[in-house]
Nucleic acid binder design. Structure first.
Lengths: 247, 247
DNA sequence: CGACTCTTTGAGGCTCATCAAATGTAGTGG
DNA sequence: CCACTACATTTGATGAGCCTCAAAGAGTCG
């Protein structure tokens, strides 16, 4: 990671700019946002269900996950977040956390105080819209995951998840030639797609056997994007990767 | 339904007021919003995936659902909306619909132009926050449904869904003594909880046999709320039914 | 009363969970 | 460099939950 103390701010600005055109003033306001950076090992809770946080968390490096547990202790991961995402942006308007957020790989995150974020939003309504939109895209991904988990079988689900990951990582420059790092265990993948780790293992073997993915440690290569999207019934519409400025 | 031409506006105001305290000016602005009311039979699409709507839809009477189809034509319902909800509020900031919305019972809905909604939000930032919060609660429900579908079995899932429905309908005054109307077929319930209609039928029988619900036509009675919440592992936290004003 | 839709029931099979154990792969300290 | 530990992946076997197909009852409505 760059030593630039403003790297978190720049990451956030780049992310918003991929959708909205920001004025110099807006960019400056974002650049001036105080962001407290900390590093985490994997599997560390960042916020917990029931908390009443006074800050939001911006992912800088690595991946985080949003999860909940059933009363029998089964875990469901509802979302994965990559650098540039703000997994608990909702806490700006919902006092109590209704889910927990944890690092799923070693990662770096930045904390932004709610009051600072609110102040910026008050002065720059277009930034309010931009942040609001971020939470709407998150919601859109939840919907797609509901379809995935509710109505597709494990093989398709996994292919779909890998497609989504590739696209989202590509958007932040973390993919080269269909090749990216996925530092997530099979047990965690199981918690994402709602199956068991044993079954994840078998599904991954099937995907490899069908030539849809190649894996080496935590590295994943997609040799044939077209084929994987077909196997995963993947249509990137729901990611809303372009066109944010209101009509 | 009342003949009052401002009924839709009043419904919206009441909904927001259950969370935020609104000033007279804010209320007046909402009362002045033009809303075009129309009636629908059941199973009618209101907006479709891929559409670029220029208006939002406020549910006035009956229920609507948010759904998507897999390429094999299987349907997953991602959300149910009750009077007072705005199922496609997201379209204010996401140009293209990533899901379809349909009536699931005969219903009345009101359409509000995006431009009108935007104008109100510009003048009253607290209303922006209130609408933003609505979309955040929707997202919170998506997360809970992901846990439900991904990690709980059908019996628990159904109990959970009925708990949620009771609470949400109670919030808009549509429940009396644990008794409410649920004009939804078992096939539709199956699309909600991600199973088959045959299995829904068996699960409902089991719930009846266990004394957790009583049904008569589309009428549902919950004789023992406490027992049903245990069976459904239900914790209403995720509905965020109170406390919206920022700290 | 017939046409339609929805609910209910049965039977067989498939997907996937669970349990348990073996193998593989870092990371640590001697 | 090797033994040792801690995890993660892989494999096998068994069974539970649920799907699908098919057909029979029950409401509901013109």
């Amino acid at each position: 990671m760059t030593a630039d103390p403003h790297f978190p701010n720049i990451l956030m600005i780049r992310k918003l700019e991929s959708i909205f055109t920001l004025s110099d003033e807006e960019k400056q306001a974002l650049r001036d946002l105080p962001i407290q950076v900390i590093s985490l090992k994997d599997d560390q809770d960042i916020v917990r269900i029931g908390d009443r946080p006074s800050q939001c968390c911006l992912v800088l490096e690595g991946f985080t996950c949003v999860y909940k547990l059933t009363s029998e202790g089964k875990r469901q991961i509802m979302a994965l977040h990559v650098p540039g995402d703000i997994p608990d942006l909702q806490s700006l308007h919902l006092k109590v956390m209704d889910n927990s957020i944890a690092s799923i790989s070693p990662c770096t995150v930045g904390f932004i105080q709610h009051e600072d974020l609110r102040r910026v939003c008050e002065h720059y309504p277009r930034l309010t819209a931009a942040f609001w939109r971020e939470t709407l895209v998150d919601a859109s991904i939840f919907r797609e995951w509901l379809l995935n988990i509710g109505r597709r079988e494990a093989y398709t689900r996994m292919a779909h998840l890998l497609c989504e990951f590739l696209m989202r990582l590509e958007a932040v420059g973390l993919v080269e030639d269909g090749f990216f790092d996925l530092p997530i265990t099979q047990a965690e993948l199981a918690d994402v797609i709602g199956t068991s780790s044993v079954h994840v293992n078998r599904v991954l073997q099937a995907l490899r056997a069908d030539g849809l993915i190649q894996t080496k440690r935590t590295q994943v290569t997609i040799p044939d994007w077209e084929k994987l999207t077909v196997a995963g019934e993947f249509d990137p519409l729901y990611l809303h990767l372009e066109g944010g400025d209101a009509a």
